[in-house]
Design a protein around this nucleic acid. Structure first.
Lengths: 326, 326
DNA sequence: TTGTAAGCGTTATCAT
DNA sequence: ATGATAACGCTTACAA
């Protein structure tokens, strides 16, 4: 493989000048520039990026953390991020945490070992105090999730509002016995806030919530099916259910129909995200502006890498989409 | 940031020996090793990976090319690949070609500039002669797609068989007027082969195919809806349709139901892949062993990186899954 | 406008 | 078993 040295020799010019051409420095005589470019082509030269990284302390690479890329919400986020990153010459390293603290920790070391210029977190597994030390090694930007203690750029949605919007819709449709279903609340402020929105809407409408109507730890389609079984087994059944994801809503819908229930007559269902399957199934849902979030996030990240002081937080809005399940 | 030099100084031992500890060389006295480890901890030392890359000519990074990560088929593939790669200490760079030759070309340069140890192609946009030169820069492994001219490790399914299996199922169900719907055939041998399987099955059953029943360039849910409109507008309508993806089948199914058609009575539909939405919609489909493909591919790649001579091709099998649309 | 030379942090070679 | 030294390929003061 040809090096900058070979190019310099062939062109009869110093390495320095070759490097200048490579980096588009001013003050290079046109004629020499041409000669160098010619030599490069002739030798099929490409700069060795490992050497550039070492010298420039810059990788042009960003790590994106997601739980699992097969979750459509996250794959959509990543799709847009990668596209946006590529626009600015950045590459993306995909890091799947599988909802696991240790995995997340290992991937964070990419920052310390200078393998990436920055890290984007779309989900957070560890407590912030464990993540905090890494901010000294490079910028961390949070997208989708948020943490009060994390004073880093955060692009997120006000989930209180999202929870309120979905619940209010069910209430406006006339449902009075509304169940609430979400993922884990252990670590995530996101789900806690969404529930806060739910409660606010219910309180405003002076509707009571049976404690059996709170259903947690539901993330997948399969979980949605299980949630239906739990509802079916209740003596005091809800007439509508708010779910934290379209997957869960889809599983719930499938199981309900398989059991001969009519939706929304026997049970109204609202999802969250507005994924393609929501449209296919005619699922009412709360739409999140995924593309905007992804784009904003990547822009903040690139600003941060370039040392510009970014805004600490950006807040986007939801949109309600009614279909046939409410 | 502490360097190997700092560690050596603090421990009162040479850089060489520190490096030996780092790389688990034999012949390091236990006592010195302890001292070094202690110094590392004390300084919070981590090796600079850029320097290691330059010196070792090894990145521990693999690029994976997909058209778009939001396509569930590809995100599933990538999910398993990333997991498998992480097991062996490799990172994945996500490269979305967006079905674009130039994009693919740009990403291939990652190999030439030594940013990755190898490239996995799950779709191929350029002709092989344009890709071939890159094999000198590092291993290329093909997954899912295949190309007769590409003599590199290829992990794929015999799509002739897949096309045959799905079509035969429709025939066995008693359908006689079967349409065929697929993505672009321009560049991809995959879709050409699948159609070959379709034709074989039809010929064996002595069934004729109206030329209006061949529908191409369908990839997305939206495309599936359009395909339905085209079918609806035909005078000579099919009674069943073979589609090249669950997305297309899903769109078709949705549009058909929205138009008041009964499935499978008015039109039988079979998809391809067995994605989660196939189960949700009760879609019959031809299942591809995605996880096996992904795992095999990553293993072949890691072998290739380590200089082991890999098999040229690996061939896996399909499975038919009947649900309620046939 | 150009070139010389030092150095980025690591590891491999060769002595000892 | 350990250490001195020379690379790896590039960029950047500094000097000219």
């Amino acid at each position: 493989m040809a090096t900058i040295h070979d190019v310099a020799k062939l062109a009869g010019i110093s390495r320095t000048t070759v490097s200048r051409v490579l980096n588009c420095h001013p003050y290079v005589a046109e004629e020499k520039k041409r000669k160098i470019l010619k030599a490069m082509k002739q030798l099929n030269y490409v700069p060795n990026s490992s050497a550039q990284r070492l010298r420039k302390v810059k990788t042009d690479t960003i790590a994106v953390f997601v739980p699992r890329i097969t979750n459509p919400f996250f794959s959509h986020l990543v799709e847009v991020m990668e596209k946006e990153a590529a626009k600015y010459g950045y590459k993306l390293i995909l890091c799947q945490t599988h909802y696991n603290k240790e995995q997340e920790g290992k991937f964070l070391d990419l920052l310390k070992t200078k393998q990436v210029d920055g890290v984007i977190l779309t989900s957070i597994e560890n407590e912030w105090k464990h993540i905090k030390p890494y901010v000294n090694d490079g910028p961390i930007v949070i997208c989708n999730e948020y943490d009060d203690e994390a004073h880093v750029p955060s692009i997120f949605l006000n989930q209180v509002e999202g929870g309120y919007l979905g619940t209010k819709h069910l209430i406006d449709c006339g449902y009075k016995r509304i169940a609430y279903c979400a993922g884990s609340e252990r670590r995530s402020r996101l789900t806690r806030d969404r529930r806060k929105g739910f409660k606010t809407a219910m309180r405003e409408a002076e509707l009571a919530v049976d404690k059996d109507w709170y259903l947690f730890n539901a993330i997948s389609i399969e979980d949605g099916k299980n949630v239906f079984q739990r509802i079916k087994s209740l003596k005091n059944r809800p007439d509508a259910i708010f779910t934290g994801s379209d997957e869960v809503a889809a599983g719930l819908l499938k199981a309900a129909k398989d059991s001969g229930w009519r939706v929304p007559e026997d049970l109204a269902i609202i999802g969250f995200d507005n994924q393609p399957l929501a449209e296919l199934l005619g699922l009412s849902t709360v739409k999140q502006p995924i593309e905007d979030m992804a784009r904003h996030t990547m822009q903040e990240m690139i600003c941060a890498i370039n040392g510009k002081v970014p805004k600490e937080s950006t807040n986007l809005s939801f949109q309600l989409i009614q279909r046939s399940t409410t």
